[in-house]
């Protein structure tokens, strides 16, 4: 029966990540309720909604940092609903975090290198000198350069400014060469000039990969995303390109209702 269901709901070939009936119940309330989502390969897809709409929960479900109460998730047609998060990262679906996620005591270069190190497989070789990681340096440097941090290579990551931490985080994520990136509010708490810089960076890295990003603010994603899914109270309210979604009366209502313009 489940095979028949998969057949029936099988996403089209150009869908990379797909969720069906995704539901998360916490004691007393349903944070995400029966959400269907299809992310097209090569697109920038935004998941937006007012506060408490279930965006971050949804995001955590997709990367398995939370277990769904019901529903299925498929990545490239493969069921990942019960897979641990580390394995999902190994399949090429890599996420970022809302609070900037760097390794604060490691240097900028080491931050990126720790991602590159994944290529060696597991690193349980405690008897070997880390000189074996030297071969990763040239590439780590390129990655750092790519996001404009080359003059901070040996700084401790924890001492970087907020915007630079985000850039470093993106460099680290890119070092894994993920097929798909999930960005959790990449612009949150960022100064205006940083927003422009990160927007440009996201557009650049989207050239040959798929991006799903969670954003609070509709206007931030307006010119960046190909497709927008609007969540409200844990459910999909509307989906489509920005022009259509922004004119949808239900969306306008949800935002006004939540106290936003």
């Amino acid at each position: 029966m489940s095979a028949a269901m998969t057949q029936q709901n099988a996403p089209k070939a150009d869908v990379i990540l797909s969720a069906r009936g995704l539901t998360k119940r916490f004691a007393g309330f349903v944070a995400v309720n029966d959400v269907d989502l299809d992310v097209q390969r090569g697109s920038i897809h935004a998941l937006i909604g007012p506060n408490g709409a279930g965006k971050t929960t949804c995001f955590n479900l997709l990367t398995k940092f939370l277990q769904p109460s019901a529903g299925t998730i498929t990545l490239n047609g493969r069921d990942i609903t019960r897979m641990p998060s580390a394995d999902i990262a190994r399949l090429g679906l890599v996420r970022s975090f809302q609070i900037s996620a760097v390794f604060p005591k490691l240097s900028v270069l080491e931050n990126v290198r720790i991602a590159l190190q994944r290529r060696r497989g597991d690193s349980f070789d405690f008897w070997r000198s880390q000189k074996v990681l030297h071969e990763l340096y040239a590439e780590a440097m390129e990655r750092v350069d790519e996001v404009g941090l080359s003059s901070f290579t040996h700084e401790t990551a924890g001492e970087l400014s907020y915007g630079r931490k985000r850039a470093l985080e993106i460099a680290t994520t890119l070092a894994l060469e993920p097929e798909m990136l999930l960005l959790d509010e990449p612009m949150a708490g960022m100064a205006q000039e940083d927003v422009a810089r990160i927007s440009a960076l996201i557009r650049k890295i989207a050239a040959n990969r798929t991006i799903l990003m969670v954003e609070h603010n509709l206007s931030v994603v307006a010119d960046l995303s190909d497709r927008i899914t609007v969540l409200a109270r844990g459910q999909v309210l509307a989906e489509g390109p920005y022009e259509a979604v922004s004119k949808d009366p239900r969306v306008i209502d949800a935002y006004i209702g939540a106290g936003h313009e």
Binding site: T63, S85, A86, F97, F103, P104, R118
Partner: peptide, 12 residues
């Protein structure tokens, strides 16, 4: 330094 981030990079 950051356990969830290590998980998201694929480390068990």
């Amino acid at each position: 330094d950051n356990e969830p981030r290590s998980v998201s990079l694929g480390y068990k």
